[in-house]
Design a protein around this nucleic acid. Structure first.
Lengths: 349, 349
DNA sequence: CGTTAGCACTCGATCCAAGAGAGTGCTAAC
DNA sequence: GTTAGCACTCTCTTGGATCGAGTGCTAACG
């Protein structure tokens, strides 16, 4: 059943007013806003119906109305006005992305920091990795009598490395030969897809390789684990406490505790290929601790088909309109910057 | 002026009781503990004197006493009993350090996590770097037409790397020659100490080197910045909210905000070459936001003369005795594990 | 028939006074 | 030096009274 346009206007006004004041909004206050030219009595009538339909609720008899999650959902889907970003905010973000040569994690941290300080909510960000890590180049070399180093450059120009302690004296020549062979055989291949028999073949072809190849295989194996286990970058947690919904320590505690698990956070929102802003409102969240919280999140291209996520976490009462425009702008700028390749930061580690 | 032994006993009892109950302790409660065989009236007398001396204080007339920071200071310096660690706690930490092949940051994170969950306070940890980064080996190689990679292995077996986009086509031969020369000339040298004239010399000696050496110099320069700017690893912030002193949101907010600055945190405690546990109690802290907080911290060797720090942050009312024994054990185990070299983790940024 | 004014009613928030209880400091006796 | 006694102080809790915002219902209005 479609709502009448007046009901929509009323719902919109309730959301906007409540978002701003954090106080349940009553019929008088609503009438006083001026945008609805009807009496409080009529508003009471309409609001009672909106409540029956599940869009509004009542903390107690003698209080005004607040939007339900369903109400917010309708608001973000249909009623929200586009919001314009302040010049100063754009400037600030542009300044962050203008700093070149940064590592991506650093960049996301700074962007998140800025986003959090602009919105007064915690923000989180992460880079979604592609399924594969394709070998661009592998290097092996001795660094001491008993140690050698593995350096891998992927086709996305990420570098991974590891120091290996060897049980015997390291022979640099064999390492070189092994590296040469690996580079030759597996270049542009997904390192997670190298089969058992290919390894055996390799060990047969390169004299002495069998002594070192297990370390390389272990390294690839560890990369896979690391690759699959993403951790989000979180900033501005403490700002949660500024909002009245977390006046209650227990609520704050529970949400903050949830946020402290960065891996959990990374799984918060499904990766989306589109650049649309997503909303996960209250009970739409799976996590128990997020039942009274909302997540506003969007994605941006990092390059090579990989996307990043940047979002905000707060109480269900948030200014979704403002957040949407901010996030869009952030994601846009990050995408421009990162996908351009022009200033591709070294993603080491 | 030295306190009488009875006064010390009383102070000790007050601290222990207050630490446990979070309630100001009165003369009756104190007498009820049994360890002092005097009447409440006598205790009142003594406590009044302890108050005059600055070791105790009075929230208001009809309340019991609580220790002042000076009182805690005396307690940790002289009165504290050594505390025995539970078997289960030792087990848990041993399990963490038993996991091999981890990166040091990961290890510290897990140890910190465990420490925090055992103590119910936020914990922090960081590795103090040595002043120098000595070159063990530098590698340069092209990865694409216009990009090359710099990989540096320091003598502490840390690996740093960077992808560089070059303005012209990269000539691998020149890179090799440059790397060879740098390795030859600067090996075991502190990369921060390489002089202007040495660079010029290098650029003169290797044909074409001038095209690539600025990137290497920039890389070294960035390493210096990164090297100097340490960030602490923090875990368990949300546990602060479990303690009654942070019932007041504003206090919690202020401390949590302080903690969110990891660089600031890294400067919290002076690096100490000894393995003694340090206490920074209330106003002994420089930071404004820590005036009502205490830091308990100790250090452990990482190897090569470098030390790490691990500590706990909480209200001034903490069980210093228990924390001390826990920290000592943690630091000891971490030190054993890290400095042994046997399982030296790859510290790849 | 939708809209509006009027009105009784509900219920949380605030205020205030009274009382309980914990703990003190002082004094005087042991 | 130690202790019992006691008046005093101050916080915390409790309960009732009041306030006021906001509702839902009803009846009248255009």
């Amino acid at each position: 059943m479609e709502l009448t346009s007046r009901k929509k206007k009323i719902l919109q006004a309730v959301v906007e007013s409540y978002v701003q004041s954090a106080e349940p909004v009553g019929s008088q206050a609503l009438a006083g806003r001026g945008e609805l030219n009807v009496s409080p009595a009529t508003l009471r009538h309409e609001m009672a119906e909106l409540e029956a339909l599940g869009y509004l609720e009542h903390p107690h008899t003698s209080a005004g109305r607040i939007p339900t999650p369903l109400g917010y959902r309708l608001f973000v889907n249909e009623l929200m006005n586009r919001h314009r970003l302040a010049e100063a905010e754009r400037e600030a973000l542009d300044a962050v992305t203008r700093m070149k040569q940064q590592k991506i994690d650093r960049l996301l941290l700074e962007a998140g920091d800025l986003l959090s300080s602009l919105t007064q909510y915690p923000s989180y960000a992460l880079a979604l990795r592609s399924e594969a890590v394709r070998l661009l180049r592998l290097d092996l070399f001795a660094t001491a009598l008993y140690t050698f180093v593995i350096v891998l450059v992927s086709d996305t120009h990420e570098i991974k490395n590891k120091v290996v302690r060897h049980k015997a004296e390291v022979v640099d020549e064999i390492l070189r030969a092994l590296a040469l062979h690996i580079n030759h055989t597996f270049v542009r291949r997904n390192i997670f897809d190298i089969s058992e028999s290919e390894w055996s073949e390799l060990e047969r072809d390169v004299a002495g390789a069998a002594e070192y190849s297990p370390a390389v295989r272990l390294f690839f194996h560890e990369l896979r684990d690391e690759h699959e286990e993403r951790e989000a970058i979180l900033t501005g947690q403490s700002r949660l406490l500024d909002h009245p919904e977390y006046r209650d320590i227990a609520k704050a505690r529970s949400l903050l505790e949830y946020l402290s698990d960065r891996r959990e956070l990374a799984r918060l929102a499904p990766p989306s290929p589109s650049s649309a802003v997503q909303f996960i409102i209250g009970p739409e969240n799976v996590a128990e601790q997020l039942q009274n919280a909302s997540v506003v999140v969007t994605s941006y291209p990092i390059g090579d088909g990989i996307r990043g996520l940047i979002g905000i976490i707060g109480p269900t009462r948030m200014d979704y309109a403002k957040l949407t425009s901010r996030l869009s702008y952030f994601a846009g700028r990050l995408g421009d910057f990162l996908a351009s390749g022009e200033d591709l930061p070294g993603k080491d580690e």
